[in-house]
Simulated assay, not measured.
Amino acid sequence: MTAFLIFSFLVGAVLGQRFRVLVVLPLTFVLMLAAIPVGLMLDLTVVESLKDVVFAVIALQGGYLFGSGARFGLAAARAGRVFARPVNTAR
């Protein structure tokens, strides 16, 4: 379960770097569809399977938020270098 949560977080971070927020909705739906057969293979109850899906979706969205924040942070750092004002040293 922990490995799946880490993977979900990292996928969300990568998607946050490249895509807008609407990509999270279809991915959440795919994640829920994939969790049904996995829960059946692992002999989990429906409640345990839903709990795992909820945690995975939270990790996915947290990763997306982290990736999106990193994208804007890197863009702000790049803009500071590109549009830096020249310093007037002669007075």
Rank of each mutant, 00 (worst) to 15 (best):
M1I: 13
T2W: 12
T2M: 10
F7R: 08
S8F: 06
F9I: 00
F9T: 07
F9E: 06
F9D: 05
F9S: 01
L10A: 13
L10R: 05
L10E: 07
V11H: 03
V11E: 00
G12W: 00
G12S: 02
V14Y: 02
L15Y: 05
G16M: 00
Q17V: 10
Q17D: 09
Q17L: 15
Q17W: 14
R18W: 10
F19H: 08
R20M: 09
R20D: 13
V21N: 10
V21S: 13
L22G: 13
V24L: 15
L25S: 12
T28V: 10
F29Y: 11
F29R: 14
V30T: 11
V30E: 07
V30A: 15
L31K: 10
M32H: 11
L33Y: 07
A34Q: 12
A34Y: 08
A35S: 14
A35N: 12
P37L: 10
G39I: 04
G39Y: 03
L40G: 10
M41T: 12
L42R: 14
L42F: 11
L42I: 08
L42M: 12
D43R: 14
D43H: 14
T45Q: 03
T45W: 05
V46S: 03
V46Y: 06
S49P: 07
S49H: 01
S49K: 00
L50Q: 01
L50V: 00
L50I: 04
K51T: 15
K51C: 11
K51G: 13
D52E: 08
D52R: 08
V53L: 06
V53G: 05
V54G: 08
V54E: 08
A56E: 02
V57H: 06
I58K: 09
L60P: 01
G63P: 01
Y64N: 02
Y64Q: 05
Y64D: 02
L65N: 00
L65H: 06
L65T: 05
F66A: 03
F66P: 00
F66D: 01
S68W: 00
S68N: 04
G69I: 03
G69Q: 08
G69H: 07
G69L: 07
A70M: 08
A70N: 09
F72L: 12
F72G: 09
G73S: 10
G73K: 03
G73N: 11
A75W: 01
A76P: 04
A77S: 14
A77H: 11
R78N: 04
R78M: 09
R78G: 02
G80P: 05
G80F: 05
G80W: 07
R81F: 13
R81A: 15
R81Q: 13
A84Q: 08
A84M: 06
R85D: 15
R85S: 14
R85P: 15
P86T: 12
P86N: 15
P86D: 15
P86E: 14
V87I: 13
V87K: 13
N88Q: 14
A90T: 13
R91M: 11
